[in-house]
């Protein structure tokens, strides 16, 4: 074949690849633009305007909202959310990794059952599950009752309306989002890679450190983001299990929009949260790219 034969053929296949991209990605991206990007942009456009006296927006440009966001009160709420979401994420990783690892090592039949068990909580309503936690952690609840009954404590513990309760609730709500991507990356790991490490003299721990962990890190990072992001933004759990004592960014934003009716400032807080999460995603994709070494796979 001469090069003259090749050129048009290659051009056509490139064009086809482009058409395929549009066909496959088009609907999803179109949907996201229509129902997600546009509303978000509308909200974000509010950030530069003044609030009305009784709610609503006065279309006079200002940077006041941004300055206000740096008020220590709001910064401390952001810090608090960061701490709670981070603790939740670390715990989810610590609990989720062994779980995902264990599931990946099961026989295929049991694997499916275990995975269904992991997502089972999603089949019931989120609010109902959270109320169930109130019942559980209550000073009259089963945990306190049984501890008192066993004579281990005299006074019921204050479990509910604490930071710990918020973390527990978030952990419970989002740990499946940690386990699933972790499971996927562990399951995909070629077992021969671990054998190769052992064959070259690496102890089981060393093999885990040098092979298993780095190669499942992308899954761990995705799982961490899946847990961290909704934990940051959640406002139902802090309210129900934190009893309003633990205020998180989500509560703040919700309050600005629904209670204080200060939409511009709420929009600024929302923007701050989004920026923060975008930075996180950028970090994630950078780390993952470095790990995979780029190029063909």
């Amino acid at each position: 074949m001469t090069s003259a034969d090749l050129v048009p053929g290659r051009g056509a296949s490139r064009r086809r690849a482009r058409v395929e991209r549009v066909v496959f990605l088009g609907p999803g991206i179109g949907y996201l633009i229509a129902f997600m990007a546009i509303p978000v942009l509308l909200i974000l456009s509010l950030t530069i305007f003044k609030r009305g006296r009784f709610g609503g927006v006065v279309y006079q440009p200002t940077i006041e909202n941004f300055i206000r966001a740096f008020d220590p009160i709001y910064l401390s709420v952001l810090g608090n959310s960061l701490v709670i979401a981070s603790i939740t994420t670390v715990l989810a990783l610590a609990l989720g990794y062994p779980t995902a690892y264990g599931i990946a090592k099961l026989a295929p039949k049991w694997r499916t059952i275990a995975l269904i068990a992991v997502v089972l909580p999603f089949w019931t309503n989120f609010l109902i599950r959270t109320y169930a936690w109130i019942v559980l952690l209550n000073s009259e609840g089963p945990i306190n009752k049984s501890l008192v009954g066993a004579g281990l404590i005299h006074q019921p513990l204050e479990l509910l309306y604490t930071r710990g309760a918020v973390v527990a609730g978030l952990l419970y709500a989002y740990i499946p989002l940690m386990i699933l991507p972790l499971y996927a990356s562990i399951e995909r790991l070629d077992p021969q890679l671990r054998e190769a490490a052992a064959n070259l003299g690496a102890s089981p721990w060393r093999t885990f450190r040098d092979v298993t962990l780095p190669l499942t890190l992308p899954g761990a990072i995705i799982g961490s983001i899946f847990v961290f992001v909704p934990s940051m933004g959640n406002f139902i759990i802090p309210e129900l299990l934190g009893g309003g004592k633990t205020v998180m960014v989500g509560n703040l934003i919700r309050d600005q929009f629904l209670k204080a009716r200060d939409w511009p400032f709420g929009a600024v807080l929302a923007l701050a949260l989004i920026m923060f999460l975008v930075a996180l995603f950028a970090l994630q994709s950078w780390v993952t790219r470095r790990l995979n070494g780029g190029g063909r796979t």
Partner: peptide, 22 residues
């Protein structure tokens, strides 16, 4: 002997190269 203590090296039929290392 556990695999990592055997004075034996195996070249895998499917190579099993570590993808994250040069």
């Amino acid at each position: 002997l556990p695999p990592h203590r055997r004075p034996v090296n195996l070249m895998f039929q499917s190579y099993a190269l570590f993808p994250h290392m040069s």
